[in-house]
Design a protein around this nucleic acid. Sequence first.
DNA 1: CGATGAGTTGATCCTCTTCAAGGCTCGTGG
DNA 2: CCACGAGCCTTGAAGAGGATCAACTCATCG
Lengths: 260, 260
Amino acid sequence: MRSFQASGNPVNFLLPISGRRVACENCPLRPLSAFRDFSPAELSFISGFKTSEISVDAGSVILAEGSSSAHLYTLLSGWAFRFKVLDDGRRQILNYLLPGDLVGLQGSVIGEMDHSVEALSPAVLCVFQRDRLDELFCNHPGLGFDVTWLASREERMLDDHLLSVGRRTALERAAYLLAFLHERAVAVGLGQFSGFIPLTQQHVADTLGLSIVHTNKTLRKLANRGLIEWLGRSCRVLDPVELARVAGWDGPGERLRPLI
Amino acid sequence: MRSFQASGNPVNFLLPISGRRVACENCPLRPLSAFRDFSPAELSFISGFKTSEISVDAGSVILAEGSSSAHLYTLLSGWAFRFKVLDDGRRQILNYLLPGDLVGLQGSVIGEMDHSVEALSPAVLCVFQRDRLDELFCNHPGLGFDVTWLASREERMLDDHLLSVGRRTALERAAYLLAFLHERAVAVGLGQFSGFIPLTQQHVADTLGLSIVHTNKTLRKLANRGLIEWLGRSCRVLDPVELARVAGWDGPGERLRPLI
DNA sequence: CGATGAGTTGATCCTCTTCAAGGCTCGTGG
DNA sequence: CCACGAGCCTTGAAGAGGATCAACTCATCG
């Protein structure tokens, strides 16, 4: 038997604060080198596509499995994660969401969410009307292609995770995960500022398919080797190159990507 | 340590037999209840989009990791699977491909394949020109949306697999996999004909993240309970409902899907 | 025919789970 | 102010699920 413990905390509920609204033209993410440029027409469509913004606290459920939200989101700032749970509480984290990532695309395209999304840190999301997605595909085929591109990118990350959980050892898995998250954080400029990945060892355990105890011991090994540093509720990556080497991971080969 | 054995056989290479060509209008898959109807305009575009057909033997590599194929495929008949391997030969099967599934979309959209695809049985594929994908998005936004839909569907299946490999026990995993494959086969009419899923226990092991020995013992338990029957190089599912119950799996909730 | 691949089974070992306990920090309330 | 509980991290000990090693059967095939 494996980790039947009810992982995950009692969660807060969504707290839609419609605060200040950043115009897409001034989006702080857009200048980042990770994202491709858009035509003025595309940009203005996206700007109109966005209806509002919401801010959520760490631990808030942004989308719940089984719901069919009327919205599609883009994470503007903060960290979140996608997960599924079995009946008895076993939780599997599927992937992490960082600024620039679409949230809830599966639900928007197919109809109903089959996983949940929870904020890992305080986060801000751009809100889009799901039913205007058709319009996006019809009037801006380039953006339609971009949405497919982003879906393929997610698929690619899941392929990597599956390889990891299925075939890597505990140490390799942990090294892979932290190298992966570090890489993604750096790509969107989060690495520079804080250098901290905001998660608990329970999150790591539920991502790697390990028990919390073994996760702890495994992370300790990485820390003892000087590759990471663990600081209550967050992790600092000290040697991403060596982590990737331990994991036998090539890196994501990330290219310029679209931002919707 | 876990299964470092070099799993996977010496593989045949792609053998493009440009045999008879089925017109898309007469596609044998189209009448199946699993697939949605298309407008005449869409159908005629798809028909022109298709350049040829190829037939491959079981064990042929259809797409190799690292390559950037000029083609995108749809599986017309037969079974295939997507997989990745680590440097030392550990292999992880990511998902299975059945008739109607797109093959190589990731590569077509992002550029380079980061996984391989191998035929599990003799198979026939429809060949599309990758560089005409833009045209599809521009001239037939509905089809563009469909491509995104299919990408989301793949993502959803991967989510399920990840939950399985990460958090289910060996018995649950095996039960889930066979219920899943059975369900998919039935949906495209393969279940009726043969009722056999064409794979070896090594494939099952590489899908579930288990060793071949333990996979064998686990499958035996399912067989002893009368849920499946194993017959060299293939498996017959006897009780899909009970399998799903053992796995704690709800089923895919598959809806009408597009066929490109 | 040997050879090769697939499936099977038992014995042994070890990675990882489970159980248990204790420390640390922080927020809350007396 | 301190007491208290709740998370979170940590560590040791015991047990089990699954890996590894080894051997054997049974088909298929040149």
